[in-house]
Structure formats: C-alpha cells, structure tokens
Design a protein around this nucleic acid. Sequence first.
DNA 1: TTGAAAGCGGTACCAT
DNA 2: ATGGTACCGCTTTCAA
Lengths: 346, 346
Amino acid sequence: MNLKELADALGLSQTTVSRALNGYPEVSEGTRARVLNAARSFNYRPSTGARNLATGRSMAMRHIVPLSARHDMMNVIFSEFMSGTGEVYAEHGYDMIVSFVPKDKELQAYRDAVARGSVDGFMIHGPTRDDPRLPLLAELGVPFVVHGRSTGYNVPYAWLDVNNRRAIERATTYLIGLGHRRIGLVNGPEHMDFALRRREGYLTALASAGITADDALMTAGDLTEPQGYNAAQRMLGLSNPPTAFVASAILPTLGIRRAVEGRKLEVGRDISVICYDDKVSTLPNGDTAEPMFTAARSSVRDAGRRCAEILIDCINNPHLPLRQELWEAELILGGSTAVAKKEPTR
Amino acid sequence: MNLKELADALGLSQTTVSRALNGYPEVSEGTRARVLNAARSFNYRPSTGARNLATGRSMAMRHIVPLSARHDMMNVIFSEFMSGTGEVYAEHGYDMIVSFVPKDKELQAYRDAVARGSVDGFMIHGPTRDDPRLPLLAELGVPFVVHGRSTGYNVPYAWLDVNNRRAIERATTYLIGLGHRRIGLVNGPEHMDFALRRREGYLTALASAGITADDALMTAGDLTEPQGYNAAQRMLGLSNPPTAFVASAILPTLGIRRAVEGRKLEVGRDISVICYDDKVSTLPNGDTAEPMFTAARSSVRDAGRRCAEILIDCINNPHLPLRQELWEAELILGGSTAVAKKEPTR
DNA sequence: TTGAAAGCGGTACCAT
DNA sequence: ATGGTACCGCTTTCAA
C-alpha cells in the first residue's frame, strides 16, 4: 500500500493525505481523522526510500566501528553505550546504522556515507589523542557528537565526556589517604583519550602526595579479566609490591582479585582495589547493598542516551552553539578498600 | 555530485554512466574507464535513497532488539555476534540497522520495517520457545535467519544453532565420569530456547547415569557474575552440597569461583566447574596455553558471520531450500575439573 | 481546505 | 555502444 493507493481509496489527493499524515495544520479535522483511520486500518507506512529522496534526510544515525584485530571497541561498554543511544534514536524516529569497516577504510567510510546521503549524523566512539576523524567530519560539515574528547584537536565540537582525570585522581588520592604508597595502575589502551586522562589523574594524585611514580606499577591493556590477573601477578611478585590497585574497569578487577586470592591474600583486607565502574548491566558491581568494589562510577548507558539527545539537537538546531558536557563520576564505597597495613604484605 | 552532474561533466548520458558504474557489459571499455575515473575523482556515490526507490531494495539488514527491563539481549554475547554479522554485511555492501524497541512494540516493529520497505532481511536473536516472531515473519514473507531455534514452531525456516543440548550433556557426562554425582547447574533464562536445551542436556546426562535430578541444584538467571556467586553460595551451603558445577557462561563461572574460594576451597581441586564458553573477545577463557576453565566452546562471532552469509544467500536465491545448520561445540580441557573426592567437601 | 504537478536521484526499458 | 524517458513513492510549491 502506497500513498497513491491510500489516497485513491479515500477519494482524496496524495497531497491532502500526506499533509494529514504529517500533521500539517491546513487539513480539516474531519479529513484528518478519516485519513489517520484509513492509514491505520491498511497498516500504511511511508516508504523510507521515497521519503528520504524527497526530504533529503535519511532519519538515520551512523556508528562506524573499525574492525581492529583485537576488537578494542566492540566490548561490553561499547554495546551498553549503543543501547543507550539506540533507545533515544528510536524515541525520535531515527534508525541506528552500525558499520563495521577495516581500520584502513575507516575514514573513507565517513566520506562514503555522507556522499550517499545515507546519514543525518554520526556518533563517534572511543576518540584517541589527535583523532583524525574529527577534522574530517568538520570538513564534511556533517553533524556529529563525540563520546569522550580528543586531546590535541582544539576546534570546537560537540562532546560528552566523563571527567576521567578527576575520577581517577580522586580514587588514587583516597587510597593514599588510607595510607597506601605503592599503588598499581591497570589501565585501558593508552592511545585512547580516556585512558590517557586516567593515567594523568593517577600521576597527579601521586605527585600531590609526593610519591614518585614507578613504571613497574603501571600497565595498560585491553581491560580483560586476564589482563588484570597478569598485571597483578607481576606486580605482587615485585620485591616492593603494591598494597593497592586502581583499575580501569570491572573485568580486570576480577582478575586482580583472582591474583590476590591466589596468594592467599584478601581484597579489602590485605590489598585494596578501586575500579572504574561503567555500570554495565551484565557486569554489575555486586548486586547487594554494599558494592563488591569501591569504585568511581558513572553510567555509560546514560551517557549514550545523552549523546543521542545532543546529536538530535545538533541536527534540529544547526545554529546553536555546540554542546559540551563534562560529567563527574561518583566515588562509591565498597568492600574492597581498607587502611594500608604497616608491614608490607608478602 | 549526483548522476546527472557526473554525466554532464563527462558529456555522456545518465544511462551510460549508470551502466558503466554498475558493471553492465554493453559499455565500451574506454568509456567505462573514463567514467570510473571521473567518479573516483569527484568522489561520486549513488544516493542510497534514490537507489532504494528505484530498485526496491534497501541494502540493509535489520536487527530488532527488545528493550526488556534487564536488557537480557544487549549483552556481551549479543554484541560479539553482531560484530560477526556486521563484518559480513559490510563485505557484501549491506548496512546493519539496529532497532531498540519496547517489548510490547516488538512485533509491530517488524511489520513497520517491512511496510516502509526499509529492510531486505531480518536477523533474529535469542529465540524463545514458541517464539511469536517466526510465524509473523513467515506471514510477512520477508527473508530472515534465526540464531538458534524455537522449540514449538515447526514450519521450516533458516537457522543456525549450536547443539546446546549435546554440548551440556557431554559436559555433564564428563563430570559424572570423574565421579561427581552432585552437580549444580547455573543456567541462562529458561524462557530462552538455548537455555531450555542446555537444561535438557544436563537432565539427560544425569538420567543416563541413574542420578536423580535435584531442584535445589538447578538455577536459571541472567548469566552475570553475581548470579553465579549467589547460586554457588546457596548450593554450597546445602547439607548435601554439589562437588561440581555446570555454568552457561564465563561470567557466572567467575562468580562461582568467587564463592568457592570464599569458602577456602579451590576450583579444579575441591570443586570442579565446566562452563559454556562463547569465545567472547573481551571475556577470554584465560589467555595461556591451558584455559582457565574446562569448557564447551563455540564461537559466536563465527556464528554471526555464518548467519549473515545465510541471510544474504536467502535474499539472492529466494527459491533455494532454507538453510539449517547445527554446529557442535567442542569440549576443551582446562584447569577447573578434577576427579571427585571421596568425602564431600564442606 | 484541497488538488495538480514538479522535483528528489537513481534504474532500466525501449529506441537508435 | 549509447541515449531518451518513464517510472519508483513521497514532499512541497503553487494554484484554485
């Protein structure tokens, strides 16, 4: 059933039917009701292709995900973020298109999508330092929102970020306040902007307390359970091991716990751990009143929702200033931190 | 730059240019080269909307994800599967559209997408027993592939499934062979077809060994770390506790390990554990030669890739018989299983 | 308040 | 081998 057939069935013109359907004011209430009724009973839906062509808008947002060998991006956090954006898109009638492209074709994929007119806006995931996508998108003149920021690119753009630096600085300072001086860092991949900022936060906290940073206590990787395990294993085996850890996600924190317990030590008694908790539904930080781990927490799903709202706003109001939001993470107390013991635990 | 402008720039007709671009044979090699060249230098791409309208095809596959309260679906496994499908779609020029819809609007979303002509095929995730989506899709007459199967719906349809029943039966039988008679089951949500089949496999293995199933040793839930922890805590507290566990995913298995270690017991010595391992890149089952857990293993990403191929094949060859593939999981030996001790460990 | 008709940017049939 | 042109289904301007 297309518009013409619907109009014929009603004995009206396509124009009137289209107007009635799209809520234009110049249609009499009587006809509007008739049209809406008929449309419902025939289960009529306007063809997206045709509407696309006629309006020049695609009603679709695109998320381009590079297929890197290790699939850095397509992880738990990414999908949680996406489901936040997807909810909001759906509420506003937008489709979400997800493109997986080989890393070396990534930039071209943005160009292509714009040239084909298949997209109204882009959501940018996982910005790196000096991310090459941002200048490209600015050049293409298409709306986009970045989840995070890109150190080194200083032209204004729309973004939403958590204050990663501050969150980890607070977490580290808290551990220092408990008497810890040897604190291990298990970070995410440090070409990613968020991981860089977290590292800065960690270093700032140490510096403020007059503690010299030790390369042996810092590691960066892909935030898996084994990453945490391996890092903790190595660090706990040092002649001067850490008494506490800061980890960039729950998964490596589970690995840290495994390493700690493997040495007959206990998290929250012998070894303190704080992690960054993105509040991923499948990886809850415990499910009781007291969280499993003390954590810096913020919701990626909420971030996704808000990013989508910002993107839609960019499209609807192209001349408003670009939105930039910095969210603060909260520090929540769990069972994984305690005052440092006087004697190093070995 | 559109087709007309490109044709004008070349001094050719739109027809010829279109033919050259789409690989039609009746174009001289000279003109084809010229056209291809010009298209490249102008960075010309055909408008998706226009092509959509003209061909009646959208070159897009849709994944509809219900927004259930607990977000059953948007989990680690789901995104791993999606990235498999997405890769293949991209290789074949298809877009992947992901729609998040409230559960009560799910079926309507399929109808809508078909009525708008915005999709060439659907990928169906997480089928349940008597899944209502399958008869609907059959009625709509649109190509679709199911990842899994739906017990109770017996009309032929295209699917790819892992032999969940057999995999868990083998795993359970293996534990029984090691001397375990009290085996706990930590399963996924049992309205899902895969979870039902796994339970059947578990029960079959027990029955074959003459072991009476015990409701207190079976639990179903959302496959999170706390689910495994809580289930194991409860079961290990029974007067007649299990000496082994079968778990439906890595995450709850990590929780089981936590509960076991919390009782000063050791996995792989005091308590045996086998889990189902979907080979999710962010949740590897260890990263060394020996897997952390003994496991029934199959790759969701590969399943995603294959499902996408099948879907594309359905579209290209609508009259071929529907493909149905049953994959066997492999049972891999890790460090989490051992011969049962004579005395129950408490 | 309603209708006619000109696009939107391609594809593909029918001529030449 | 190349070109003219009628669609595809909708939106939107202009006219009535």
